[in-house]
């Protein structure tokens, strides 16, 4: 791969706004000539690969106060977009409020990349591996539209993102996860990733699961299933969720869940794996996790 030359081909100007409003105004003024950037790890690889144009202006978000904070109140854990993936991976608060998201952070890239890369960047890509985990945790995004910070579910934001409905200057400022109210049972929270090698590899398929397990009734409630991977759209798997919700977990039910995941998960062919492989993989990953719940937790 030919590397980008630093100069003169790669010499964007730098702007370092001190507020969301200032950042939004800069981006609005520069439109497609500018990009928001913090860690810049994904952007840098896109520029090197030629899959994204080198911008004329970098809008460095790191000087905006509050976007590196992790805060907790009675109802939510809120994480600023500039929190690094390393901080996410090590956050006890995230491990508690969003264990699948914390595990996703552990499996994204490698430690040195995570020291630069941010939660906001992974989200803003529209396909980052953290997103399926955020979906199953019912997370919401705080997005700045030039006037207000608006909170919206990750699923709604993804719909806007993938339909091209997000204005270019809109900015993901942070994420909030509802603190689990509990149901008396044990909470299942899983993130799994399959790539082309075991460690430090781009994902082919990711899955995330949360549910309350009632061992006595052998049922799952508040079931959330999601899948994604590669540059595909992260998505909830509603049909499979509906099959599991409140039903007694059994081998025959798992077979139906596998088929629902395989049928419901929309992915894409890439040079290394076809869509059908990814559908099967998502089904196998989810069912294997549920199988472990059935076999292991039922005994405990």
């Amino acid at each position: 791969m030919g590397a980008l030359q630093d100069e003169p081909l790669f010499s964007p100007a730098l702007r370092q706004p001190r507020s969301l409003r200032e950042a939004w105004e800069l981006k609005s003024a520069c439109a497609e000539q500018a990009v928001y950037v913090s860690g810049g790890t994904l952007l840098r690889t896109q520029w090197e690969a030629g899959t994204a144009a080198v911008p004329q202006v970098l809008i460095d978000l790191r000087n905006i106060a509050g976007m590196e904070d992790v805060t907790r109140d009675d109802d939510y854990l809120t994480i600023g977009s500039l929190v690094t993936l390393t901080a996410c991976r090590r956050s006890g608060a995230l491990a508690s409020a969003g264990p699948a998201a914390a595990e996703a952070a552990r499996q994204i890239a490698a430690p040195a990349v995570r020291n630069l890369a941010t939660l906001g960047g992974n989200i803003a890509s529209g396909y980052g591996d953290i997103l399926p985990a955020l979906l199953v945790h019912d997370a919401e995004l705080a997005v700045y539209d030039g006037n207000l910070l608006r909170v919206q579910p990750v699923e709604a934001w993804l719909e806007r993102r993938w339909s091209g409905a997000i204005p270019p200057a809109e900015l993901v400022a942070g994420v909030r996860l509802p603190l689990d109210q509990g149901s008396g049972g044990s909470r299942l929270a899983v993130f799994r990733k399959v790539g082309r090698r075991e460690a430090f590899t781009a994902s082919l398929v990711t899955i995330a699961v949360t549910a309350d397990w009632d061992a006595a009734a052998r049922t799952l409630r508040r079931v959330r299933l999601a899948a994604g991977g590669g540059s595909g759209r992260p998505q909830r798997l509603a049909a499979a969720e509906a099959l599991l919700e409140g039903a007694e977990l059994s081998r025959s039910l798992l077979g139906a869940v596998y088929e629902a995941v395989e049928h419901g998960f929309a992915s894409y062919d890439d040079p290394f794996a076809g869509e059908q492989y990814k559908k099967k993989t998502a089904g196998n990953l989810i069912v294997s996790e549920l199988w472990q719940t059935l076999e292991l937790k039922a005994r405990s």
């Binding site: 791969m1 730098l14 810049g40 690889t45 970098l58 040195a112 990349v113 020291n115 630069l116």
Partner: peptide
């Protein structure tokens, strides 16, 4: 030069980072 191999690893404020991904600013 895309942050995959680690040959360019340096410590920035004591933490490893890929120098190929890190920009001057």
């Amino acid at each position: 030069e895309i942050g995959r191999c680690g040959a360019c690893m340096v410590l920035v404020d004591g933490r490893p980072v890929n120098a190929c991904l890190t920009m001057a600013y």
